[in-house]
Amino acid sequence: MRVLIVGGSGYLGQFLLKYLLERPEDEVIAVGYTYADENAGPIDHPLTKIDRCRAFRVDAATGEGMDACVRAMAPLDLVVNCAAMSSPGKCEKEAELAMNLNVPTHLCRTLLEHNQKSEAIAPLLVHLSTDQVYDGESPNSVEDVNAPSPVNTYGRSKLNAELHIAENYVAGRHVSLRSSIITGSQPPLRPVSRPLFHDFIVNSLKGDEAVTFFEDEYRCPIAAVDIVAHIVALSKLAGKDAKTDWLMRYNMGGPDRLSRVDMARQTAEVLGVSDANVEAVSSASVDRGVISPADISMLSNKLNSLTLVSPMGWKDQMRLALGMAKM
């Protein structure tokens, strides 16, 4: 299987890359990935030293390098787009750049151009979207019941990405997965710049001073390894011979609807420590410079039924992330 991971040196991309590299040696796997390190060229970047990986420096916002990457990797079976500006606050401050980065205009165009030249079956395109396409007004959103209506730039850019793919890529050969908060251990191949939320929780529980957590924003966190399982299952179901009859967009969350207070207290239970310093506060008590949807919990039954993946709950996610359980 020939796979292109756009954003493969990011957090989720590394877990997918690790999985692919651990597959049986009798499968031919070529993995490409992009990265945006200003000071790391394609020669000295640490991921280039991994056997069976090919590295390409691509600017997702301008498309520079995309043609050379796809041309070198073709024919492709699977393309997974993990690349994004994912900080809502940063997206709000740099709205134009967020749109250029998060809507995969150049990726879709380049894949189509190469597909038309080769007359091969188009690779399955799996795009990582977000639960923030919902407005947060209803709990347990369902894909074909709750219409997306994002309240911030990040959510709008991700919804625009879903719509662009639906309108500009091969029908039946793409799917957008609306992910909730992603949990997991430290990335397996190289550090990433953003701190992990569960690390913040664990460090907070170690101290005596009160630490505030929002009690009125709800999500359905999902483990990185469960996302990888969904993607792999979709790639197998898609095959090479026919268009899929799936939905174009699926919710992709874990089974638990939790506030951040819930996450902190359940993590304390897993660790066997006190949660006395966990202080519940309203999200309105903090000015984050961006509107945040209140309840973007969602039901992911349709995707789970399709892929036969049963995502783990928060406590099991924490046991895995903290090295208390094996994958």
Score class of each variant (00 low, 15 high):
N152W: 03
E94A: 02
L97C: 00
P104S: 11
P150E: 12
P148Y: 01
S149D: 15
P139Q: 02
Y134L: 14
V126H: 03
N140D: 15
E113I: 06
Q132Y: 15
N115V: 12
V126L: 13
N152C: 11
P148Q: 00
N152V: 07
D135F: 02
A98S: 15
Q116M: 10
Q132F: 15
V103K: 00
L97F: 06
E137T: 15
A120P: 01
E119T: 10
I121D: 13
L112N: 08
V151M: 04
T110F: 10
L128C: 15
E113Y: 01
E96G: 07
E143Y: 01
V133S: 05
L111R: 03
V142Q: 09
N102G: 02
E143G: 00
V133Q: 06
N102A: 01
V103D: 04
S138W: 10
N146T: 12
V145S: 06
L101G: 03
M99H: 12
L125N: 07
D144C: 08
E94P: 00
M99R: 12
C108M: 07
D144G: 03
S141W: 01
L111D: 06
L124N: 06
S141M: 10
D135E: 11
S118N: 05
V126T: 06
V145R: 09
E113Q: 10
V142N: 00
G136S: 07
D135P: 03
N115K: 08
T130A: 08
L111A: 03
P123C: 05
K117R: 10
T110H: 07
T153C: 09
Y134C: 13
E137C: 13
V142E: 13
G136W: 05
N152E: 09
P148C: 03
V133P: 10
P123G: 04
N102D: 07
D135M: 03
Y134P: 07
V145L: 13
D144P: 00
G136L: 00
I121A: 14
L101A: 08
Q132T: 15
Y134T: 09
A122T: 10
N115D: 12
N100R: 14
D135W: 04
N140V: 07
S118Q: 09
Y134A: 13
S118H: 03
E137S: 15
T110M: 14
P104G: 08
H114C: 09
S141Q: 14
C108I: 05
S129V: 11
T110L: 10
P123Y: 02
P139Y: 02
P150F: 08
A120E: 14
E96I: 11
S118G: 11
H127T: 08
H106M: 11
